[in-house]
Write a protein that binds this DNA or RNA. Sequence first.
DNA 1: TAAAATAAAGACAAAAAACTCTTTTAATTG
DNA 2: CAATTAAAAGAGTTTTTTGTCTTTATTTTA
Lengths: 145, 145
Amino acid sequence: MGLFSKTCEYAIRAVFFISQKTSEGGRVSIKDIAVGIDSPEHFLAKILQDLSKRGLVQSAKGPNGGFFVNENTLRRPVAEIVEVVDGNGIFVGCALGLKECSEKNPCPLHNQFTTIRDEIHSLLRTTNIGDFNEELILGINSLKR
Amino acid sequence: MGLFSKTCEYAIRAVFFISQKTSEGGRVSIKDIAVGIDSPEHFLAKILQDLSKRGLVQSAKGPNGGFFVNENTLRRPVAEIVEVVDGNGIFVGCALGLKECSEKNPCPLHNQFTTIRDEIHSLLRTTNIGDFNEELILGINSLKR
DNA sequence: TAAAATAAAGACAAAAAACTCTTTTAATTG
DNA sequence: CAATTAAAAGAGTTTTTTGTCTTTATTTTA
Ligand code: FES
Ligand code: FES
């Protein structure tokens, strides 16, 4: 198991990819995204439909259509993608699967785990979608393989 | 999604429970464990069979049989349960699902994520199975609800 | 306005995870 | 040794996740 579902992994990688391509000045088709992030094309299409409905990415049909992001999206935290796709379970859930994580009824790992969980939350809230455009363009960071 | 699979959550809670009961001086049946950690009984039975094969828990059939742990298990890190059940993916895997996490081909979240991932690893390696027996007996920590 | 390009939508299919039920094996005890 | 207890084993089932395939709707452009 990863930290995120496969769907969420694809979603984050796709949004990063679209963000990069937008910053380079263009729209990008589902096919190109799928190749660019090494994901199943039609599965990715579904994911992007959701993200599009939520306004996290923009899309246009027809020739020269494709996906892109607006300025607003670039300044949104990565946590928003996670919340849309996986919900907020990883930010508030109990490490050992108790119905709810609370100080009143803490599992054995509660104290140490909540510290780490909050770091994850903090990382994803302070990191914005557009933050990696340069590194991606320069090839310092990768979205496939 | 949680950090661990449901199977792994049950496994950890069950081992903690057995550890507590052993330290209180007794064996405990699958049924009692299932009630004690609020898990499906037969599903838990499968999990305990695995843990038993791996030597993480001990078992005895027949009247007054049940599960218990030995001294060695009490000093084993919680990470061992996780490795047996979920593998080492959460300790070495890429946050965004790249085939492998590496410095050579890092995903955008690599630097910040590996820090957190290492903290999780460290937490689970330095925390031993028997560490919570007292808190569990005193009712400070909980394994159900 | 016809053809081409592209996202949206919907219906399936496969695989994995989570869970249930039944039978068998082993140990104990009266 | 018969009855009882309890884990081990095995054969399903259900649900969720992941992935595929086909059709439809929209937009552009020649
Ligand atoms: S109760 Fe388990 S992490 Fe808080
Ligand atoms: S490459 Fe993604 S976390 Fe290291």
